[in-house]
Simulated scan of single mutants.
Amino acid sequence: MKLRFFYNLLIGLCIATSFSGGALALDSWQILSASEGELGALQGLIDRAVETHPSIAAAAASARAAGADVRAAKWQRFPSFSVEGLLLDQPGNIMQAQAVVDQPLWTGGRISGAINRALILEGL
């Protein structure tokens, strides 16, 4: 959503400044009278600006991070596995190993709330 906003804003500013000689006034006849070559060149400039502008890159990174947050929140419903080991450097001690499985049975809505929060933040 943010990426689309920045893209539309950038397109509007590029069109306004290129067809009006740098001023932000734009008449509809100027767009209609533009040649195909001018519009192609303008589209190339817009594409380059979208690819290289820091605000656009930040919005894209934010969207990717929001998607990762949703996946991480959904993974909280599954069990987690771990292996622990203990070795004491004392004579006569033995090694101990332990496998642990944690499965959330009841979290009081914490997991569902985290998933809903991540989905809402992804939509912003």
Rank of each mutant, 00 (worst) to 15 (best):
residue 18 S to F: 06
residue 18 S to W: 05
residue 49 A to L: 13
residue 108 G to L: 12
residue 107 T to L: 05
residue 67 G to A: 04
residue 33 S to D: 06
residue 86 L to R: 06
residue 89 D to H: 07
residue 62 S to V: 00
residue 97 A to F: 10
residue 99 A to C: 12
residue 41 A to I: 08
residue 87 L to T: 10
residue 83 V to F: 08
residue 4 R to C: 03
residue 5 F to I: 00
residue 22 G to V: 09
residue 116 N to R: 02
residue 108 G to C: 12
residue 10 L to C: 07
residue 73 A to V: 02
residue 47 D to M: 09
residue 28 S to R: 08
residue 63 A to R: 09
residue 72 A to I: 00
residue 45 L to F: 02
residue 75 W to H: 15
residue 114 A to G: 13
residue 117 R to T: 06
residue 52 T to P: 05
residue 63 A to C: 07
residue 94 I to S: 10
residue 9 L to A: 04
residue 112 S to H: 03
residue 45 L to N: 05
residue 102 D to Y: 14
residue 115 I to Y: 12
residue 91 P to Q: 14
residue 36 E to G: 07
residue 69 D to Q: 00
residue 99 A to Q: 13
residue 46 I to S: 09
residue 111 I to K: 14
residue 29 W to I: 08
residue 36 E to F: 03
residue 93 N to W: 13
residue 53 H to Q: 02
residue 102 D to G: 13
residue 7 Y to P: 00
residue 10 L to Q: 00
residue 102 D to N: 14
residue 64 R to G: 04
residue 89 D to T: 15
residue 104 P to Y: 07
residue 45 L to E: 07
residue 78 F to Q: 14
residue 100 V to R: 13
residue 8 N to M: 01
residue 38 E to V: 04
residue 17 T to Y: 02
residue 82 S to M: 05
residue 119 L to P: 15
residue 83 V to C: 08
residue 29 W to F: 05
residue 105 L to Y: 05
residue 25 A to P: 08
residue 21 G to C: 06
residue 91 P to I: 15
residue 55 S to F: 09
residue 90 Q to Y: 09
residue 17 T to D: 03
residue 30 Q to D: 11
residue 8 N to A: 03
residue 23 A to D: 14
residue 101 V to K: 15
residue 27 D to Y: 04
residue 35 S to R: 14
residue 23 A to N: 13
residue 5 F to N: 01
residue 91 P to R: 12
residue 117 R to Q: 08
residue 36 E to V: 07
residue 40 G to L: 11
residue 79 P to R: 15
residue 75 W to F: 11
residue 43 Q to W: 05
residue 94 I to G: 10
residue 45 L to H: 05
residue 101 V to P: 09
residue 90 Q to R: 07
residue 94 I to A: 13
residue 72 A to M: 11
residue 45 L to P: 01
residue 30 Q to L: 08
residue 120 I to A: 15
residue 115 I to R: 15
residue 13 L to M: 03
residue 22 G to R: 06
residue 16 A to D: 14
residue 90 Q to G: 11
residue 56 I to K: 01
residue 123 G to P: 12
residue 4 R to M: 01
residue 74 K to I: 02
residue 87 L to D: 09
residue 36 E to R: 03
residue 64 R to Q: 08
residue 75 W to I: 13
residue 69 D to H: 01
residue 15 I to K: 00
residue 2 K to H: 05
residue 117 R to P: 06
residue 37 G to N: 11
residue 32 L to D: 15
residue 77 R to M: 02
residue 65 A to K: 04
residue 40 G to F: 13
residue 108 G to S: 10
residue 66 A to L: 00
residue 75 W to L: 13
residue 122 E to A: 07
residue 4 R to F: 00
residue 78 F to P: 10
residue 32 L to P: 07
residue 8 N to I: 00
residue 110 R to V: 05
residue 93 N to A: 12
residue 25 A to Y: 06
